[in-house]
């Protein structure tokens, strides 16, 4: 039973991973790519790790995969945030179809 649920979770995770990387190729600009890839790949890899935990049970490797989930959920959004801020400060423009950019307006007003 646990093995079946684990295999299903691993399959869901692989699907999310693959579509996240497809978004990395298809979307037009750094920020959109960051959105798609960070969300999909983080949830997909967490799903794979939880499936591995269900298949292995509470052994050493299973508990370590649970810890790895905690580390990933805490660190992946922070690195996405850092890359987005660095890209905006280094002068990468938004995609030409973008609607509004309050950050650039406020930075020009403030500085």
């Amino acid at each position: 039973m646990n093995e079946t649920i684990g295999i299903i979770l691993i399959g869901i995770g692989l699907t999310f991973d693959f579509f996240g990387c497809l978004g990395l190729v298809r979307l037009p600009d750094v920020y959109n790519r960051l959105q798609a890839s960070t969300k999909c790949v983080t949830l997909g890899t967490c799903s794979i790790l939880f499936g591995v935990f269900l298949m292995l049970g509470p052994t050493a490797a299973g508990i370590k995969s649970l810890l790895c989930i905690i580390f990933l959920v805490l660190t992946a959004p922070v690195s996405a945030h850092a890359i987005a801020r660095g890209a905006h400060r280094s002068g990468v423009k938004l995609w030409k179809g973008s609607v509004v950019d309050r950050y650039a307006e406020d930075k020009e007003g403030g500085l």
Binding site: D17, C21, V41, T45, I48, L49, A61
Partner: peptide, 11 residues
């Protein structure tokens, strides 16, 4: 992040 998933699957 993909390599982390790869390592977990190799287990």
């Amino acid at each position: 992040i993909l390599i982390v998933g790869f390592c977990a699957l190799m287990c």
